[in-house]
Design a protein around this nucleic acid. Structure first.
Lengths: 202, 202
DNA sequence: GCAAATAACGAACGTTCGTACTATTGTGTG
DNA sequence: CACACAATAGTACGAACGTTCGTTATTTGC
């Protein structure tokens, strides 16, 4: 029970790395086993099916995202500081090149499964809904703190922030544009400025 | 020479539709042949390799994009009208559900090939560069026409417009959010408003 | 309308896919 | 130390993959 969990986690971490390059569908049990220097059947025994492996891999990526992007942002003061921290952690996540060599797995999977019904897509949608809700909540808190003007629509702002992240991912990954994160920062600041509350400055 | 070209085009159109759902990598010669009720080998004979098929499929999608998004926008008056037309055509392209049932093929391929060097990726990058340049040029014209203020950075604005489109694609396709295009329109108008020239109103 | 050219076919290649069984090794505990 | 069982390896499977081959059908140019 102990050794099993251990290698299982090892497998899943490697699976996240591999899937970030070739996608969740392109992730094959054979190649994953080869990368871990273990037998295909030995690896397969940890999961009942490929879909299970895909689901757990995606779940692992979601956990990593929460730990590295969201959780540290919660330590910042509510309002704009937390919102900015969230955004900058998010950009850092997108830029990662170590164990996410192929870019954000969730974004890749979103495109891969947006028209492929099933458990993977459902998990993807649930995670995305959760993320959006959390960002919108952070924005609502910024309004409550008096950092953003009361008329601000949290969902609209969330939508636009997400767009900036997507564009950054695209430009950074496909076009290899190192200035993309800088552009993203500028875009966010302009966005904040447009919705900043008149009276108190943050 | 005539019959060949004809079925080749037929194949490529079907390939675009199929690849938009399963990706350029997931596009298999066997399933494509089955959809067209022809033999695997007969289809394969039109292309020397799978990579050739992928390249031509992508090229076909790029052509469709130019015809349906870009070309009609050029008929509008330069400046904001043309920029708005371009954006709205782009949104319409993203929302298509007939022969692009799986969403924009270029966006899907961008995520699929962003870390897979080769001819497909090169073609993808070239197309993206061309598109970005054209959008930036439309913005520059809007500045020249006095619709946008002279300090506007065309590349930054292009980046942000692209982000809005990406977010729309994501929300519309994965989350099934029908209000996404509306959000996109609002975002664009706010973006334009922020950069609008002071003196003459458009 | 005949001959040359092209297009489509069916079968088979070797490989890899996911999955199922069985055997062997390894680990933790009484 | 040995027993029980978890963990890994081994082997085999049917199907699908991209690709090649030789052959048949169908267009095309004269």
């Amino acid at each position: 029970m102990r050794k099993g969990e251990q290698t299982r986690t090892l497998i899943l971490n490697e699976a996240v790395a591999l899937a970030s390059q070739v996608g969740l569908e392109g992730l094959s049990i054979g190649s994953l086993a080869a990368r871990l220097a273990m037998s295909k059947s030995g690896l397969f025994a940890h999961f009942g099916s490929k879909e299970d492996l895909q689901l757990l891999t995606l779940k692992q990526a979601q956990t990593l995202f929460f730990e590295q992007v969201f959780s540290p942002a919660l330590k910042q003061a509510r309002g704009l500081p937390r919102l900015r921290a969230l955004f900058s952690n998010w950009l850092a996540w997108v830029k990662r090149n170590d164990d996410l060599a192929g870019g954000c797995l969730m974004l890749a999977a979103s495109v891969e499964y947006d028209d492929r019904p099933g458990a993977v897509r459902d998990l993807l949608v649930a995670g995305q809904r959760e993320l959006r809700g959390a960002v919108a909540k952070a924005i609502r808190l910024a309004i409550d703190e008096g950092h953003l003007e009361p008329h601000t629509d949290p969902w609209q702002l969330t939508f636009e922030m997400f767009g900036i992240v997507l564009a950054t991912h695209h430009d950074f990954r496909l076009l290899g544009d190192a200035r993309a994160p800088e552009r993203a920062g500028d875009a966010l600041e302009r966005l904040i400025e447009a919705h900043r509350a008149a009276a108190p400055r943050a």
